[in-house]
Design a protein around this nucleic acid. Structure first.
Lengths: 143, 143
DNA sequence: ATTCTTTTTGATATAGCTTATCAATTTCAA
DNA sequence: TTGAAATTGATAAGCTATATCAAAAAGAAT
């Protein structure tokens, strides 16, 4: 039994419901994807180049988008690229970013997360992921 | 005295500090920008085409990025395009984004903002701006 | 007002990321 | 095993944003 049996099952269920097929490439890409917290298509392309030199970039994009539709991944546009987040990874962290020196501090705050849920519920949404970035100056750069 | 005297002053101050020049185009673009809550470069290009048919798209991009450096605007990557947010609009609003249909709901939550300040203080930061995006499914797409 | 240096503009080429196209291959149910 | 339907890989095409560069404009000094 594979390490990622649960997610593999979700994928297979999605495939079955939509008359799609379970392929070697989809299995390979899901396996690699689940080991990451988030990854870009390009990064995955290079990572998998050794295991399967003929795996095409288009297939990676197609498959990652498929994962989004299956609810396994979540696309997030960051900078000029698209990050594919592994939804199954818990403990999402947010960022404090110093606009002076570029320093980044990661943090987690349950109260904020709870309020986010509240806002979402009020608007009829169910949140799958979020992104919170606070921009400002760190203590050193303020002086 | 213009309607946007304050922001025009901020821009001029930024220009002065960086040996940049105050041009007809920058004035025109800032004036149009401040009337929006957020806008893409392409949208502004079409909006301003009537007032100045020769205004180039590159100039719009350059100027909107300039506004970001001056603290008047904030770039936000959404979908395949970049949204430029008008920072001067009160009650900085955050976004609920449906990953199913692309629907966007804007919201404001003082409690979240207060907690953000707290987190920043604990880490020695002073916040100048922030970005919060909640991704999920709206009530219609959930079914 | 004129001159001169520096910056900006507009038009277009280029770059970077993602999707579309399509013949060849693979999947999977019959 | 067979055959219809879906997938793949290679590459072209699409789209957004930036780089390039000659011509124009801004602003300081005369």
């Amino acid at each position: 039994m594979s390490k990622h049996a649960k997610e593999m099952g979700i994928l297979k269920e999605h495939l079955g419901k939509h008359q799609l097929k379970f392929t070697r490439q989809r299995e390979l890409i899901l396996d690699a994807f689940l080991k990451q917290e988030h990854i870009t298509a390009e990064e995955m392309y290079h990572q998998l180049a050794r295991r399967d030199p003929h795996l095409g970039l288009a297939t990676i994009y197609r498959t990652l988008n498929l994962f989004c539709e299956a609810g396994l991944a979540q696309a997030r546009h960051f900078g000029t690229q698209t990050q594919y987040d592994n939804v199954s990874h818990k403990g999402h962290h947010d960022h404090l970013i110093c606009t002076g020196c570029g320093k980044i501090v990661e943090f987690e705050n349950c109260d904020i997360e709870r309020l986010q849920e509240e806002v979402a519920t009020q608007n009829g949404f169910t949140i799958t992921t979020h992104r919170l970035e606070l921009y400002g100056l760190c203590s050193r750069c303020r002086h």
